[in-house]
Design a protein around this nucleic acid. Structure first.
Lengths: 196, 196
DNA sequence: TGTACATCAGTGAACGCGCGTTCACTGATGTAC
DNA sequence: TGTACATCAGTGAACGCGCGTTCACTGATGTAC
């Protein structure tokens, strides 16, 4: 075993980090394998010692990025007080900084419409990421709601978050920031009123 | 003028129809110019007599598709009774048939994350389409709401529609249909409660 | 302890395919006489 | 009315580039003696 046991797995992680960022920033189709390897500080020939294909990389990078996002959800929720957890996560997500930095943000909002059309493993990564986020949001809802209502709220809230970010990016910085604020206000009011 | 005046513009429309459907079904990057021309019943060499580049086609096809969607919004709203107009549009959008047929559906939900990264003209088409839909939805809201609240509701509702459809497609048919139903219920309740 | 060796992570050139774009052409059709 | 002509929509072959993938190699490093 001529190289340290962890050396290869560290390189692999470096490639995944680079891919997760590049893909979210520029889209899966527009990023070449050599772009990712450049960013990871390697030459493109070595790629296939770590991944079986670009599609394989895409599937794993999607999981990698999703794990970062769910971790951010958890950190934000933990830092907020009990009553404000859900709104804290919503405000983090529908924040101008998230609009401006897709490369560090939610992969569903950055790559959603492209990833659905990817290979089987890419689609599976996408659905896994979506389910994980829905699950996190559901747990932040008041326990007094029925399971059915919590399902509806989690779905509606996450849909509004993803759609809001995509629309805001489609409108550009200034107009987009205003739309994000409108979405935050909409959700705040929708979650406050609800007499379920 | 050896060809009838309208012949060329009819061909152009045929290419736009083909492109709007193919792009929404398979994504802009995955569809080749020759795929579009095949679908339009032409050979690929003739393409540049109608459009200056694939990007030009993408920008115009996006506008073409968006016009179809806003027309569908209008038809549905007109057919419903006064009180149910908005919910009728929401239910049409968050419908299993829309999940299953992106090629005839909303271009924002089908191509949103790809189109943001397109050229200047593609991005402009995207933002024009988004503004048109927001405008349509705003007009369906009760006039008793303030302008500010109508802005917030239109943004929140459309974000939830777009996000809901994208998430549902990411989850696949069966699980996606359930999520669509949850989003419809969420919006119904959010719009009913609101004590603004 | 030092040295020869085997392993395999990473290199860089090359291959082949698909796609956007170009271009010389063909032939259908409206117009002028 | 009929015919020669000019126009230009559409054809199909070709070009060139970029990208995913392969492969013969290099050289860094852990191990055996």
């Amino acid at each position: 075993m001529p190289w340290s046991r962890e050396h290869k797995s560290q390189t692999r992680t470096r490639i995944l980090d680079a891919a997760a960022a590049e893909f979210r920033a520029r889209g899966m189709a527009a990023v070449a394998v050599s772009d990712v390897m450049d960013r990871a500080g390697l030459t493109h020939g070595g790629f296939y010692a770590h991944f079986s294909s670009k599609d394989d990389l895409a599937a794993q990078a999607l999981l990698h990025a999703s794990a970062q996002t769910t971790a951010a959800f958890d950190r934000t929720a933990t830092a907020a007080d009990d009553a404000g957890r859900l709104q804290a996560v919503i405000d983090l997500y529908l924040h101008p900084a998230h609009l401006a930095h897709p490369e560090r943000g939610c992969a569903v909002a950055a790559l959603g419409t492209e990833a659905v059309r990817g290979g089987r493993s890419v689609r599976r990564s996408l659905s896994v990421g979506i389910r994980a986020r829905l699950d996190r949001l559901r747990r932040l809802l008041p326990g007094s709601d029925s399971r059915r209502v919590r399902d509806q709220k989690a779905a509606g809230v996450f849909a509004c978050m993803v759609g809001g970010l995509i629309l805001a990016r489609g409108l550009g910085q200034e107009e987009g920031d205003r739309l994000l604020a409108d979405c935050r206000a909409f959700l705040r009011s929708a979650l406050a009123d609800s007499p379920h």
